[in-house]
Nucleic acid binder design. Structure first.
Length: 912
RNA sequence: GGGCGGUUAGCUCAGAUGGUUAGAGCGCAUGCUUGACAUGCAUGAGGUCAGAGGUUCAAGUCCUCUACCGCCCACCA
């Protein structure tokens, strides 16, 4: 697309109503096919390196929340910026099947219908899940469009699609062949509510006050092997029901109290099992009684102890956390009912010694909040040690950078202390583990879609093999996301061209869940770091700092916000004032700020359009004004635009997006609207300016606005696109801003900036004096001005503007301060605006004005003297003068001279 | 028990490599129907940068300690 069309700039309605145009603009982008790196509307330079962001796939469980809106906004920002730089840019959309989260949601829905997993059975349950997902998918994709995410919809992926299935099977098979996936019976975390094992990360240690019960185990008579009434050992436990699985009692080897008991045996009550008292350094003699009951099948510590001492492992829990047959008389009871029953029974026997309240951490399921039970189970694990090494190397070497950098410490710590990853889940919605077992216990793992043809070990035919009923942890397929989405394991063109990806943006809360896994699996399977930069966003919180959640009722629906304020306002709100990795309290006020900013820009554009000089036709092609027709205000504006562009470039390079919006807000509102447009109004309406000069003024306004729209587009794409369409464009411009070029940095003009800002300072000074003296804001004031050498031409050029902005007429210019002194009359006001000095004549001469003037000058004098004293003290310090760098010292001297001059001038006025 | 972050205006937050007088928005005060905008304009008030030491010519910024708040990791039954 070359932009040679003769488009007449469109209209800009009087009122900014984002709902009127945002949807239409998104449709235009899609229709023009600008989001695909190779789309027909793309203006990308194929020679430039591609820029790739694979979207973190939101869970397909219902709807997007504000956190998603923020993520999408940040991702879209970097993507749109790269696209405007002309890089082939891929922003790939996706959805995550979120197995456990999705089952949790569906189970609740089913419960409302009187159904359950059990009543439906696997096949019908999965059917229901596919129906559910088919319902939520379009809702979620629609939400992404509303936010304005410039995703390449032709590449939409799902973690349960065929491509992901192939990748999952292939990845697992390769890990298995490399000895990095293994199956073993081990202690895992079991969530009775979800009826599945969960990983370490999904167990949330939750503080609770429970009880520490002390229980008496009777020693056995060494002769008869029968329990002795008078000899015992007291053990402490917080989970009495685990007594049923005890297979030893342990004491510390150096504990004198128990030295004689090591090697003796005790009888475990109820199950009537005789176990040995062992010595192990894991026991803390200072805690409880110093003796610990050992339940190797239901406690991580005890499991390790059991391994060391070759103890028996007795599993006493069923999947639903009821006591199983091993629990003898308590079989069938729920774990907590069993606990009470056991305590009652112990009390009856006289073996319950004490019960004291005890603060402890209880592991709860991240998803269901149920208390998780450690339990023995045969599962698949990923051996992460070697993978973690490579992930660490990626960040240590700088090949992958984490922003903000402080998270690299957590990354280091987690990856160096990582345990093997349990990937088996006893759920239904997910990728089934591609492992088949033969009656002889052999294992066959294959990536083949139809499964193995025969047992790898003994050759038994496929018909005799049974596939593992478990599925993978949802994060296993997510971990392949950066490359499974590009076609891996096939050697596709996409993979060659777009992998490794550029930026991975996500919340810091899933750094380990997801980013670390992608890094480990990516390095192992593709031999490349899957991304160059990890950008971690903070979490969105409510105005009180709480995490947003539907159950708390404090969550905000992004669509409602967009309906009311527009997507641009929301995008601005979640980016402005944020820093990487820091949480954001999102309030209505913040979104209003974004909406107001968009409205301001809208109205500024309306003004510019309406201010077009008659000499310029409505459908004129963009022109660059001649330098000779520019006045100081125009040179100042062009210089400020250049400075803003440079600052915006730097902010984006630093991933400092909060800084980016601050810079643009300031430039557009405070400089462009408050000053540039006000100065331009005067020149455009002046009888003295030539048509060429007026045209130059207008083109300068258009040029500046055009640049600001480009700079702001990645943050607020809709309003900038809408306004841009209403402005004249250059022949080289495309039709849509979304694929227009990012601005280059123009030339600065330090003199123009200095001089115009001095004159603007004079305006502010006069306004200030007027307000303080309580003069009627409407009345014209007579102002006499003394200027420093060199400021004359700029002052003359801007004189009409000053007269209008400060309501100062006549505005007389006297070259010397002496001449100015002569203009002073009783009751007049003195204004010191940097290098400019002015005398404002009071419209009415009275004592009140004089008093106000005197108070004001005295206050200014005190302040100036204080600053001067500080400046002098600094320069009087030899150490400063000799050690500080030359420019700093020179600056300090200039500062001192300026302050001294100011003090002298104020004194002069006060005394005169 | 380790580790990390936060503490800056009434509120929410910015403050690259230490360097003139620490900024913004909201809120507050006063005044404005100035021909783009009351979703606005003008002017102003408001901060011993959590506390205590230290390094330095110079500290909101670097170091140490302390106090609150929050987070991550961790096998005390």
């Amino acid at each position: 697309m070359t932009g040679t069309t003769e488009t007449t700039p469109g209209e800009l309605p009087k009122t900014y109503r984002p709902a009127d145009f945002e949807g239409a603009i998104y449709e235009r982008w899609v229709t023009a096919d600008v989001f695909a790196p190779d789309g027909t509307g793309s203006t990308a330079d194929p020679e430039l390196p591609p820029f790739v962001v694979i979207q973190p796939p939101p869970n397909i469980t219902g709807s997007l929340h504000l956190g998603h809106a923020q993520r999408s906004s940040v991702e879209d920002l970097v993507v749109r910026h790269a696209r405007m730089l002309g890089r082939p840019t891929l922003f790939l959309p996706g959805l995550d099947h979120a197995s456990i989260a999705a089952q949790f949601v569906l189970d609740r829905i089913l419960a409302g219908e009187g159904e359950s997993r059990a009543t439906l059975g696997r096949e019908r349950y999965l059917e229901r899940m596919r129906e559910f997902v088919d319902q939520t998918r379009p809702i979620m994709l629609g939400q992404q469009r509303r936010v304005g995410a410039s995703l390449d919809w032709s590449r939409l992926r799902f973690t349960m699609d065929e491509g992901s299935a192939v990748a999952v099977r292939e990845a697992f098979t390769r890990l298995y062949r490399a000895g990095l996936a293994y199956r073993t019976e081990a202690l895992i975390h079991w969530c009775p509510g979800c009826r599945t094992s969960v990983s370490d990360l999904e167990v949330i240690p939750t503080p609770e006050v429970g009880n520490l019960w002390t229980i008496r185990y009777h020693l056995l008579d060494e002769e008869t092997g029968e329990p002795l009434e008078g000899e015992w050992i007291d053990v402490a436990t917080t989970r009495p029901e685990t007594i049923l699985g005890d297979t030893a009692v342990a004491v510390h080897p150096d504990d004198a109290r128990y030295r004689g008991l090591v090697g003796r045996r005790v009888r475990i009550p109820f199950v009537e099992r005789d176990v040995e008292i062992i010595a192990d350094a894991v026991v803390d003699p200072a805690f409880g009684t110093g003796a610990v009951k050992i339940t190797p099948a239901h406690d991580a510590d005890d499991y390790a102890t059991g391994r060391r001492h070759g103890l028996a492992f007795v599993n006493v829990l069923d999947d639903d956390a009821t006591i199983n047959a091993a629990g003898d008389g308590f079989a069938g009871l729920d774990r907590y009912d069993a606990r009470r029953a056991i305590l009652d029974a112990l009390e009856t026997r006289g073996d319950l010694v004490s019960a004291v309240p005890h603060e402890m951490l209880v592991g709860r399921c991240d998803r269901s909040n149920d208390v998780v039970e450690p339990r023995l189970k045969t599962q698949w694990f990923i051996r992460v040690g070697p993978l973690a090494e490579r992930a660490l190397d990626a960040t240590r070497s700088g090949r992958t950078r984490i922003i903000p950098g402080r998270f690299e410490k957590e990354w280091e710590h987690w990856l160096t202390n990582i345990h093997d990853w349990n990937v088996s889940r006893q759920l239904w919605w997910g990728h089934r583990i591609p492992a088949w077992y033969c009656p002889d216990g052999h294992v066959t793992v294959t990536a083949a879609a139809d499964g193995p043809t025969a047992c790898e070990a003994c050759g038994r035919p496929a018909t005799e093999l049974v596939q593992d009923t478990d599925i993978f942890d949802t994060w296993f397929s997510s971990g392949l996301w950066p490359f499974s989405t590009l076609g891996w394991p096939a050697d596709t063109e996409d993979l060659r061209r777009y992998y490794p990806t550029s930026v991975m943006e996500t919340g810091y809360d899933i750094l380990f869940f997801w980013v670390a896994r992608m890094m480990m699996l990516g390095l192992q399977l593709t031999d490349r770091e899957p991304f160059r930069t990890v950008y971690l966003s903070g979490l969105i919180r409510d105005p009180l700092g709480r995490k947003m959640s539907k159950t708390k009722g404090n969550s905000v629906d992004p669509l409602e916000t967009i309906d009311e304020f527009g997507a641009d306002a929301l995008r601005f709100a979640v980016i402005d004032g944020t820093t990487a990795g820091n949480d954001l309290r999102l309030s209505r006020e913040k979104i209003e700020k974004g909406r107001n900013f968009a409205n301001k820009l809208w109205n500024a554009a309306r003004f510019v359009r309406g201010a077009r000089p008659v000499s310029i036709p409505a459908d004129a092609r963009r022109e660059s004004p001649l330098a000779s027709d520019l006045g100081p205000a125009e040179r100042w504006l062009r210089s400020r635009v250049a400075a803003t562009t440079a600052a915006a470039d730097r902010a984006i390079a630093d991933f400092a997006f909060g800084e980016l919006t601050r810079i643009l807000y300031e430039a557009i509102w405070s400089e462009y609207c408050d000053s540039a447009l006000e100065l331009a109004k005067v020149r455009l309406g002046s009888d003295d300016a030539t048509p060429a000069e007026k045209a130059a003024t207008w083109w300068t306004l258009v040029e500046a606005l055009d640049t600001y729209l480009r700079l702001l587009h990645p943050v607020m794409p809709f309003v900038t696109e809408a306004i841009w369409a209403s402005l004249p464009h250059a022949a080289s411009d495309p039709e849509l801003l979304v694929v227009a070029r990012w601005p280059g940095v123009g030339e600065g003009d330090a003199a123009a900036e200095r001089e115009v800002e001095a004159v603007l300072g004079l305006v502010r000074g006069i306004r200030n004096a007027r307000t303080e003296a309580g003069f009627d804001p409407r009345v014209q004031l007579r102002v006499d001005v003394a200027l420093p050498v060199g400021l004359g031409p700029t002052f003359e050029a801007l004189r009409p503007a000053v007269e209008r902005l400060a309501r100062a007429r006549p505005l007389e210019r006297r070259l010397t301060r002496e001449a100015l002194g002569a203009a002073r009359a009783p009751g007049s006001l003195t204004v010191l605006a940097g290098p400019i000095e002015a005398v404002v004549s009071a419209p009415t001469l009275d004592g009140g004005t004089a008093r106000v003037e005197r108070t004001r000058l005295e206050r200014e004098l005190a302040e100036a003297e204080r600053l001067l004293a500080t400046a002098r003290a600094r320069l009087a310090n030899d150490a400063f003068v000799s050690k500080a760098p030359e420019p700093i010292v020179a600056g300090a001297r200039a500062r001192e001279a300026e302050l001294a001059d100011q003090v002298a001038r104020i004194r002069d006025r006060l005394e005169g």
